[in-house]
């Protein structure tokens, strides 16, 4: 479904992604793991074309994304949930969801506000609250719900557990498993190995913008030296 091949991405002069390639199949949940600064967030942004790769290709369902503006990437069926949540703090929950709304898409689950409130009951209680009056965990849920309003076929979740109370992290993991059951494809970046193992089918480990491991968690389990070298858990 998503085919990333040999992309090179930069922040100013800093070379962040160094010929990175990987793929994600339909219905899969894949976790991007790695230290801070390994290039996980940049990978997400490069797939989304918020940080367009200077070389290489990102193809989604056979369509080349490199060179498109971010809004076209979103229209193509990618949903992006940023690391820092980026809620519209002056808008209410319902208005935040409205910004994300896009027409239904073939081959992707279709979401309504009611369904999303079922998935994240906290949001239903606070539907008329402004984003800025919500806790970090609620903002994270709102950010995911807002992106789901675009009915994406592939969801990019950037560090959903960062800076969130452990009890909310558990809730988040359950929600992601629900999304997977709905047939959504998910690419998730994480530093929390336990969280990743609980939700993902496969792990990709990044270091200095390069892929160091790509395989199942069972396989990763058998290679503790990789885990120790790149994840420093």
């Amino acid at each position: 479904m998503l085919e990333v091949s040999a992309i090179h991405s930069f922040y100013g002069k800093a070379h962040i992604l160094d010929g990175l390639s990987f793929s994600v199949a339909r219905g899969e949940v894949v976790a991007l793991l790695g230290r801070n600064g390994a290039g996980k967030s940049t990978t997400m942004k490069s797939v989304m074309q918020l940080v367009p790769p200077r070389a290489g290709s990102v193809s989604f369902e056979g369509r080349e994304l490199v060179g498109l503006p971010a809004y076209r990437t979103a229209k193509a069926g990618l949903g992006y949930v940023p690391e820092d949540r980026r809620i519209f703090s002056d808008l209410t929950v319902l208005e935040n969801l409205e910004v994300g709304r896009q027409p239904p898409r073939e081959g992707a689950p279709h979401w309504t506000v009611a369904q999303l409130f079922e998935l994240f009951p906290n949001l239903a209680e606070r539907r008329h609250n402004r984003g800025k009056h919500m806790s970090g965990g609620e903002q994270q849920m709102l950010s995911i719900a807002r992106t789901l309003m675009g009915n994406p076929a592939l969801l990019l979740l950037d560090e959903p557990s960062e800076g969130i109370a452990p009890v909310i992290v558990e809730q988040m993991a359950r929600s992601i498993l629900t999304l997977k059951a709905e047939g959504l494809t998910v690419l998730i970046s994480e530093q929390n190995l336990h969280f990743a193992r609980a939700v993902a089918d496969r792990a990709i480990i990044l270091e200095s913008g390069q892929k160091k491991f790509d395989g199942s968690f069972a396989l990763l389990e058998k290679q503790p030296e990789i885990r120790d070298a790149y994840l420093s858990v």
């Binding site: 960062e162 109370a165 452990p166 009890v167 992290v169 558990e170 336990h194 609980a198």
Partner: peptide
């Protein structure tokens, strides 16, 4: 445990984020 640390039912060692 209730409001913050959680029970760790889903994955052990909850919270070493």
């Amino acid at each position: 445990q209730e409001v913050y640390l959680g029970g760790g039912t889903l994955f052990k060692e909850a919270g070493d984020a």
